[in-house]
Write a protein that binds this DNA or RNA. Sequence first.
DNA 1: AGTCCTCACCGG
DNA 2: AACTCCGGTGAGGACT
Length: 591
Amino acid sequence: MRPVTPRGGAARRRALSVPDARLEGMSERWAVAPVEGGGALLAPLGRDGRAAGPVLAEPDLAEAVRSRPDVVRWVWRSTTEVYPRLLAAGVRVERCYDVECAEQLLLGHEGRLGEPRSAAAALARLRGGPVPPDPPARGAEPGSQSSLFEPPSGTGVSLEDLLDVYAEQLARHDRAEHPDRMRLLTSSESAGLLVAAEMHRSGLPWRADVHREVLAELLGERYAGGEPRRLAELTDEISAAFGRRVRPDLPVDVVKAFAGAGVRITSTRRWELAEIDHPAVEPLIAYKKLYRIWTAHGWSWLQDWVRDGRFRPEYQPGGTVSGRWTTNGGGALQIPKVIRRAVVADEGWRLVVADADQMEPRVLAAVSRDRGLMEVAGHDGDLYTALSDRAFEGDRDHAKIALLGAVYGQTSGDGLKNLAALRRRFPLAVAYVDDAAKAGEEGRLVRTWLGRTSPPAAGSGDQGEAGLPQEDAAQDATGGRDGGYTPGYASSDARARGRFTRNFVVQGSAADWALLLLAALRRSLSEGGLRAELVFFQHDEVIVHCPAEEAETVVSAIRAAGELAGRITFGETPVRFPFTTAVVERYSDAK
DNA sequence: AGTCCTCACCGG
DNA sequence: AACTCCGGTGAGGACT
């Protein structure tokens, strides 16, 4: 028998502002699965995650969810399958548990990334049977809302089977290296899926007329079947400079043209061209910039992706192995700065643009627990200035280069000299990334703070236990060694992998934090009864669209969410997570 | 005709 | 000063 929860208790739980795995046992949870024809099967769940009552069949999925406002967490196979239908009916949920997303995270944690992640595959592994491969990823359909709707059937997994998979997943969380963090990871990744679906539905306000103005200014008139006027003119200039017809969009042709002019180049990248003294260089660089705008964010992009004043990218939380999001079509995470003029708030509304300040060093401080770096990151002011005051005699540029070099695995240049200074003052911080690099070079796995795990090295095959991460890299980083870690013996591939794992633990832990930020902000906006909506997210930056009078409240909510996310993700540390914020009518006016 | 690869740009 | 980490995107061209 399911314990009856008093209303007051449920309301009090909702007032807590973050999906918090520590409350998992208290949450009222139900499982739901859509069925063909718009209905749904539902079941209440007990504390053990097993069904605590009979499976109910209801004719309307959205009504079934709407009529159970006390449910705190909905367990379902796939947010992408269920949530767009709910949103279309005006139903939002507080929290969910996405079984397929959990499967992906757990497989990764177990060193089995790459095995199929579908509920059907998880069930097959559980019962013993042939494991079906995952269906191929769908390409996004520009401007089509329906691209987010998956068919509700054909997964071959009944609600009862789904709950068996779920119960096993809960047990696998218990067996994780840090079970509480792993539960938090699944919970926040699920929250990210809710945010992604909601942002797709809201859309980013986009003024097609302004976009066309920008294109006309930059590119000139469109010529039917050819380049726009400005590109055609630049092609003529380039050709004139070489004394022969040149196609600037063909790198081999450009290399040949320079060879003919007595200049040998190995590529036509902008930074290499910029070093050459030749009259074709300036128009070539201009051409490249405009060509990019034309092909990736020009008129056809506008036609494909903007409908009714909104750009609705299909976000994919956890789309990269490090946990950063990707988008499927539309290039939403690569909107050129010049095009951001077209992102304009509705009449009487504003865009609150908030950018997290110096994410990498703050996250490195939090995960490494380096006392000196935590102190430097314990203020809202410019972190690189504070860092340079402490270890680089006030030279901010050197401080920044040293830190980014440590995080990216810089291989040459001034960074190495500066790295030594960094290592002396912040031994735990540098050891943390050095250990991650060493693990990568040796073919071991590394994890983010919450437990997202790097993929096995390519070609490592089934090496079983050998691929599992060492017990606790952070604990081994006791500092005090002065030489640091030098990857002198490793192969080029191994070194590349070391740079990847070195970066992974920082970038991925930053992504952990960002998920908690989104979850906290989403909850805060919703509880505040605001009309404000999250409309954009890009790694360390959010945009909220809101009535002008709500803007200052939203700014405060973002700052509070950042600090809360820091505490929930990393525990109590002195590290602060400040934002640069701007309240603007146009995205391009922020920074 | 469809698929895969390289190139170069965009963003963080 | 150099071009290190993570990705998406489109065009052109080589390939099947």
